[in-house]
Design a protein around this nucleic acid. Structure first.
Lengths: 123, 123
DNA sequence: CGCCTATTTTGACGAGGATCGAACCAGTCT
DNA sequence: AGACTGGTTCGATCCTCGTCAAAATAGGCG
């Protein structure tokens, strides 16, 4: 992606960007920080995982609750959860035998805001 | 991505999904339709292109207005614009010598809604 | 018509990513 | 301790994607 010199990972989606993308041009830096979050959402399995976790009762789900829903192997689920976690879209916590994942709503909300279209934003 | 049997391309982001992802679990089908749009947003150059186009005066921009802003070659810009266009995030129109791109705000708004977090959605 | 500019298409290449099976680590229970 | 279940890491494989240079297409103009 955009072969630039070699950038910092920027795991957190907390770009200094809280204005809609349609309102003013994203800087190269902002784009570089936001893109990985959207990329993380760019896989159907991850999208479903996130949605499933977020809409689970209590707002969190055990990995064992998630695995059976998908046609992919457990390592693959684990891999996708790791991607979501490292980008800050979910957090995880081990409680005894099980590991629980929880959606990070502020991160989601930030992305939603970036994509939002303010009234009379048209031509 | 998710090696499933072989799915239709589903170029349009018009999934039958207008509810936030955190409200109820996405179906496999919905996820399969939405993910490509997020994937399209998952590249910094495309994110900036979209933002630049959307926030241009008149809501549209000529390719020649875009090219100089980036460090990548013209074919690469063209490639990214094609990706955005085929997914329905922008539309293009040729007027004489130049080609103008315009952001498809309804598509953006749909994605924004999907990511939005309704009040008291928490635990 | 032939040339010039704007944009896209083509082909190739290297890097990244999704997936799996196997091996491994973490707790629990007996 | 040993065995069992839940979950993650490792290594390999295959396919996708971003990028560029070169060639092709589209309009406008002399």
């Amino acid at each position: 992606m955009s072969k630039q010199p070699a950038r910092t990972p920027l795991p957190l989606a907390l770009a200094d960007c809280h204005t809609p993308l349609v309102a003013e041009p994203l800087s190269a830096d902002q784009a570089e920080r936001l893109a990985p979050s959207f990329k993380a959402l760019g896989d159907p399995v991850r999208l479903r995982l996130l949605s499933l976790i977020a809409s689970f009762e209590g707002g969190e789900a055990c990995v064992c609750d998630l695995t059976d829903t998908f046609d992919v192997s457990a390592p693959t689920i684990s891999h996708h959860l790791k991607v979501l976690r490292e980008i800050g879209l979910v957090s995880s916590e081990r409680r005894g035998t099980w590991v629980y994942y929880r959606a990070e709503q502020p991160a989601l909300d930030l992305l939603s805001t970036v994509l939002s279209v303010p009234q009379q934003a048209g031509a």
